[in-house]
Design a protein around this nucleic acid. Structure first.
Lengths: 231, 231
DNA sequence: CAGTGGTCTAGACCACATT
DNA sequence: ATGTGGTCTAGACCACTGA
């Protein structure tokens, strides 16, 4: 209510001091309002720089859940990533489109995650060209057969200076293709869980697309969803 | 850090005034700390009464996501619930156990949700005995064949005075059984999406268990997950 | 250097619960 | 009447950013 939309993506919003002065409210009240906007994912704030509008397109068809993105990758704990097809520059119109890229090219590769109990997930990972350049040199993503506890998100955050803010997930069920059977050690046409994740950073830019297939006998996706508590 | 665990479920915690005095902090600082605990789902607060510990058992294996529970039921929009098997008192050891009931009995029924495009979901709904008594009289749940835009959550909240706080979800893929094929209009052994939801109220008590099977060609589960922003 | 957001203190008034 | 959490004001200091 406080701020009149619309703001263009990445547009800088008025500062706390300005709003406090112009609206005749205390700074703490303005801060509370901004804090709520951040919680709703409408703006992001950078200490020393200001407050900015998030890129739009969150078309409301999605449930908005708030939680540690790190935990989405909870499967990462105690699991290794194995390179099946190294990350390489590829033409992938669909992936490029879903990440809203201007080109048809992305960096893409095929990977597998395994537990002690065996492989439970095959993932195709796609990243935009500019981010892929730096990543394609890591053995963890580029060397066929290499196993490591790597996570693409970690590399994006640590080495590329990106702050991943969240992901859009689409979850469905599919039949196992011959390729999936081979990698997941399941029967042909048996049901597999498919989860697509489109990651975005704090500015709303899409930074990674993963298409994940899970062997349901070795993995169940568990999520706790909580009603937004305004307390 | 502020408060030393453990607190028993529903145990009353010190008030803001007490902590502020005893710890030598301002009340606003204590409030901020409580606010964070609420966000993490560790306590709940009731105006005029106090602050209470949430029932334990959240064993940490779950991703904690924060979002409007109402939206979990987003599928509820523009969809009707059809009674396949009315809500009735039944012995269901597994359901009773998952809801941590003392007995082996629950109220359970089978329902179906349909779009204009046709049925897309079959759901088995289980509620504890004490809650079921009041619900089994609603036509929306008790009369075979009845279709209505009902939601069990709505009834729990509006008529039973329960505040649903969230749900534990387990998501996996299964093969369609003959019964599911009939109801979901899909092929035998085709993949279906299964989502189990265990709902709890603000005190941490489990109030409903639903076992949902989706026809993946008519429904995809979409969720936006965001990293918890402490801003 | 001035401006930004992040944190903290201190005090006020309110609606609501309990006694 | 008392005590609870919810909200607001007013002012302070800090770390960090950018010019």
């Amino acid at each position: 209510m406080l701020l009149e939309r619309p703001f263009r993506p990445d547009e800088r919003l008025p500062t706390e001091a300005e709003l406090s002065r112009d609206l005749g409210l205390s700074r703490q009240t303005v801060r509370k309002a901004f804090s709520d906007l951040v919680s709703e994912g409408l703006v992001y704030r950078v200490p020393g720089r200001g407050t900015f509008a998030v890129q739009g397109g969150q078309d409301g068809r999605y449930l908005r859940a708030f939680g540690p993105v790190d935990d989405i990758l909870a499967l990462t704990n105690d699991s290794d990533l194995e390179v099946l097809q190294p990350l390489a520059r590829t033409i992938d119109i669909e992936a490029a489109g879903r990440m809203r890229q201007a080109t048809d090219e992305v960096y893409a590769g095929l990977f597998r995650r395994e537990h002690t109990a065996g492989p439970f997930m095959v993932t195709r990972i796609c990243v935009p060209l500019d981010l892929g350049h730096g990543l394609a040199e890591h053995d963890s993503f580029a060397k066929p057969g290499v196993r490591s506890p790597a996570t693409m998100i970690e590399h994006l955050e640590r080495d590329m200076g990106i702050s991943v803010a969240g992901a859009l997930q689409s979850i469905t069920a599919e039949s196992a293709t011959p390729e999936l059977c081979k990698y997941l050690e399941c029967a042909l046409d048996s049901p597999v869980l498919r989860i697509d994740r489109l990651f975005f950073d704090v500015t709303g830019r899409f930074v990674e697309l993963t298409i994940n297939h899970f062997n349901p006998s070795r993995y169940t996706y568990r999520v706790e969803v909580r009603r937004r508590q305004t307390a």
